[in-house]
Amino acid sequence: MAISKTHNVLITGITSTLGRQLARLLYYDKRIGFILGVAIDDRPFYFDDFSPNRFHYMRVDLTKPRQVNNLFYSDIFKDMEIDTAIHMAFLNKPSDVGEKSHELNVVGTKMLIDKCIETGQVSKFIFKSSHLVYKIRPHNPVILDEEADLNFDKDAPQWIKNRVDADMICRAKMDNPKINVVVLRFSNIVGRNIHSLMNAYLSSKVAFSITGFDPMVNLIHPRDAIYAIQLAIHKNVKGVFNIVGRDTAPLHVFLELNKTKNRALPEPLQKIINDWQKKMGATDFDFKAGRELLKYAVLLDPAKAEKVLGYKPKHHVEFG
């Protein structure tokens, strides 16, 4: 697959931990011309060392159509010839549920991808999705490829439904000739200040596992996650890709490595204890959203990403 020349990129959710790390990686990537960073916050201090010739920060609320329009009609967007959009603005905390979460995660994603197509200027749209969009079942195969069933369960928690809806919105645009849509489905990204279900679970004061279950889990280092995005920018690709990390082991192994206290509890007691833990501020993990994750393995098949993107994880997750 040929490596393409300079790209000018739009990164949404640039103030998230991953967004910030990605911005820095791309800033020092000679194949990247200009970075337009977008987030809901005021411009943070950690971009102060970035030259205005290569980086511009815009405060945009992606749930507000007017602000999204202003972004796409702005001079900087046109003048800098932004050709690649990386959509990372997503409420990922397990506690992020409700209307606001739906508006950003689902409506915001739709608005953004539609606008990218409408301008005709953006030729690639990269969406950071998750392994949680897959239907997690006891009889799933040990590794799930990109064609595995998604979780369309009407009883699925809203937190999961939002992910599946956003993923599907992007997939629906896959055949659009004006744009190459790339959906990267990451397994559990684990690292400091990363909002993911598994990170929340491992960071709990006491992690309650489900009696009689100890699923195989894959963890991905944030540096590998942003490396996969970098590859997706530069390679002439489109489609869905599973992105995995280097570390795969049963859940209890990672709890031990992270020195997280672990107590097994029967499943019927889990929700009560989890609600109590959340009230006490002892965990951000949401049992309702992560129940299946504590019971059954969700390992992703990395073959397509390895073959088409050339992605291979390099880093072991750091614990403690």
Binding site: V142, D247, T248, A249, P250, V253
Partner: peptide, 10 residues
Amino acid sequence: DLGFGYDIFG
């Protein structure tokens, strides 16, 4: 062994 004493199936 994937590195922790387990194969992919556990």
